[in-house]
């Protein structure tokens, strides 16, 4: 219980470090690793009429090998925040875990919810600490962070990051990972020349746009799973809105896929 006088005690990662449960930030060295890390690819998020839709394909790869075809890259951090990851899952899932516990630890100790800016910054700090691994090519993580804050306008907030921890707020959409150039093209097109801008479309339309975008990304990028028609594996989609987070049931995605995408 001994703590420096001015320590507010709310920083969970440093508590873990003090107890030797979380490694120190990776040192920056120039040697490149020989191992080929597992990576996961192509996530996207955009604002629509009821909030933010976050979607990710299910494939995890290591070099040319498909390691896993049911990876979940869209992770719930708290009641109103979603983190989606492209990059090395080992690092990303650990980051998500630290982040989830950090937000709760802050709320419990400080008796107030961490601000959206504080949450966005917390992820940025974790990426920055990981930069040494990113430079070595074994721990690159490029996340998207989506949250909803009813008290401010606009309520839906969407951020994307680079591997060094720079955060960028997106006004309409964001996509990262190896399939993202195609996805960005589609989202830009839909937003600019589609029937309606993305922020005005309904939930069903949003799901269709996301499915089409991921299918297009998978067409040219081997690392993106897209939609597996044989095994019936569909992308994971979550919506964060005024009511909190909702995971779209696979049946609903499948139905829209068969009706309007296939």
């Amino acid at each position: 219980m001994d703590k420096p006088a001015l320590d507010l005690g709310a920083d969970f990662p440093s508590l873990l470090r003090r107890q030797g449960l979380l490694g120190p930030p990776a040192p920056v060295v120039s040697t490149r690793a020989e191992i080929v890390p597992t990576e996961s690819t192509t996530i996207l998020a955009f604002k629509f009429a009821d909030g933010v839709l976050v979607a990710g394909d299910r494939r995890a790869t290591s070099g040319n090998t498909v390691v896993y075809d049911r990876a979940d890259k869209v992770l719930e951090i708290d009641r109103r925040s979603i983190m989606a990851i492209a990059g090395v899952p080992a690092t990303a899932w650990e980051m998500a875990r630290v982040l989830e516990h950090s937000f709760q630890f802050f709320r419990r100790t400080q008796l107030q919810e961490m601000s959206v800016d504080g949450k966005v910054r917390a992820l940025s700090k974790l990426l920055r600490d990981n930069f040494g691994f990113a430079l070595q090519g074994i721990g690159v993580v490029v996340p998207i962070f989506a949250t909803f804050d009813a008290k401010v306008s606009p309520s839906a907030r969407l951020y994307f990051y680079d591997a060094m921890g720079a955060q960028f707020e997106a006004t309409d959409f964001a996509a990262t990972g190896s399939g993202s150039p195609a996805v960005r093209g589609i989202l830009y097109f839909e937003n600019t020349w589609g029937e309606k801008p993305l922020q005005k479309i309904s939930e069903d339309d949003a799901v269709v746009v996301a499915l089409r975008a991921l299918d297009t990304a998978a067409e040219a990028d081997t690392a993106t799973g897209g939609i597996d028609r044989h095994a019936k594996i569909f992308p994971v989609m979550k919506i964060v809105g005024a009511e909190g987070i909702r995971t779209l049931p696979e049946e609903k995605i499948a139905e829209l896929f068969h009706k309007r995408v296939e």
């Binding site: 219980m1 969970f12 508590l15 873990l16 449960l21 630290v98 516990h101 100790t109």
Partner: peptide, 17 residues
């Protein structure tokens, strides 16, 4: 406050690890 913080720290580290 001191006891509450100690309890939260213990529970949080256990829940995390």
């Amino acid at each position: 406050e001191r006891l509450r913080m100690a309890a939260i720290e213990l529970a949080s580290t256990e829940g995390f690890t």
